[in-house]
Simulated assay, not measured.
Amino acid sequence: MSSASSMVDWDLAGRTARRLVNAGPQTTREEAAAVVAELHEAAATAVAHVEALTGLRPVPGGAVPEVVVVDRPGWADANARGMAALLDPLVEKLAERQETRPGVLSTAIGSRATGLQAGGLLAFLSSRVLGQYEIFGTGGRLLLVAPNIVATERKLGVDPSDFRLWVCLHEVTHQLQFTGVPWLAEYVEAQIAEFVAATDLSPDVLRERLQDVLRSVADAVRGGDGDGQAEGLMALVRDPRQRAVLDRVTAVMSLVEGHAEYVMDGVGPDVVPSVRTLRKRFAQRRKGRGPIDRVLRRLLGLEQKMKQYADGRHFVGGVVELAGMEGFNRVWQGPDNLPLLDELTAPHLWVERVLGRPALPA
């Protein structure tokens, strides 16, 4: 999985995550089989509802994404492979630009240290992620993490069937975003490649900084707040071009996440009878600075970055209100139509820029 020049030993990261993660809630074999079957059924059912609400359709003739119900180690393995497929070729290009290449021993030691830290973070996140649409390294695959879905529905005290369909609506929205908008994955990959190209750091220095970030994240997982001044991933960003790329990536991820949140609630009680209860209890679960908040805030380095993800929901709802779903779907026509950071909190600016008309209610 990992090349000789890898910044992170992703094989070790995957093994470390598998060793650290716990299995999840107790279920009988029959209960587990029933959960897997219902999640597959919910994912299939969700497609028609998301298509009807959003107007998105897969590109004709495109591959049909695989739906895979996984456990926590399975999610960690998948993400280790995906990150390796995305980042290792970019790091190799970065190393090729250096006049002198790092020694094999120092590279191995550094990548193993970072692999251990990344494995710890994967183990932590693998017990909290409900689902994920993979776009890197697999050609598109929908993962549903069964033990986390069961654990969450039990903790919230909600109807299991409603909750499982509700989660699938979110993940299937991501699936349709990337299967219906072919340039979207290429755009995200291009932004990451541009981010790497803009750095003047050697792979060794970049790895050292990444280790510092991961140590800070691990401290956040344990509940420590440090000095409150940690830059997180922003510590890796020095060049103004990289800051600009980070802004574009934040904007597009805010869009796709906000769009999925809009769909989860937009289908209404005819599809998910207890949708209002689900949203209320799920929103309550997100309040405060729990473990996942500490990790993401520390990892991103800025409170504002977390806020921008929430702003995505505001943006989608605002544009639909002003221009209707057909007007909103102009966002998928090309990179120039993606929202800018300031438009996330001011949807009327996007309507005026992209649609070329005053932002009047649809």
Rank of each mutant, 00 (worst) to 15 (best):
M1R: 06
S3G: 05
S5R: 08
M7N: 09
G14V: 09
R19I: 10
L20W: 06
L20S: 05
G24W: 00
G24Q: 01
P25G: 01
R29L: 03
E31N: 00
E31S: 00
A37S: 10
E38Y: 07
A44D: 12
A46H: 00
A46P: 01
V47L: 02
A52C: 09
T54Y: 02
L56S: 09
L56K: 05
P58G: 01
P60A: 07
G62W: 06
P65N: 13
E66C: 13
V67C: 09
R72P: 06
A76M: 12
N79G: 14
L86K: 10
L90S: 10
V91E: 11
E92N: 15
K93I: 12
R101Q: 14
S111G: 06
L116E: 06
Q117E: 14
L121Q: 06
A123C: 08
A123M: 03
R128G: 05
G131C: 04
E134D: 11
F136R: 09
G139D: 10
G140R: 04
R141W: 01
A146S: 07
A151D: 03
E153W: 06
V158Y: 03
F163R: 04
R164Y: 05
F178G: 00
F178K: 01
F178A: 02
G180A: 04
G180C: 01
V181M: 01
W183K: 05
W183S: 07
L184R: 00
A185F: 07
A185G: 04
Y187S: 11
V188N: 04
E189S: 15
E189M: 13
E189F: 09
A193H: 07
F195K: 05
L201E: 11
P203C: 08
D204L: 14
V205W: 13
L206A: 12
A218C: 15
R222N: 13
G226C: 07
Q229F: 14
G232L: 10
R238L: 15
R238W: 15
R243L: 11
V245Q: 05
V245C: 02
S254Y: 00
Y262S: 09
V263P: 00
V267C: 00
V271W: 01
V275S: 00
R281V: 13
R281T: 14
A283I: 03
A283S: 10
R285K: 05
R286M: 12
R289M: 15
P291T: 10
R297M: 12
R298A: 07
L300G: 13
G301D: 01
G301N: 01
M306F: 03
Q308H: 12
L322F: 02
G324I: 04
E326N: 06
F328M: 05
N329A: 12
Q333L: 12
L340C: 15
E343C: 02
L344E: 03
T345G: 13
L349G: 09
R357S: 03
L360R: 15
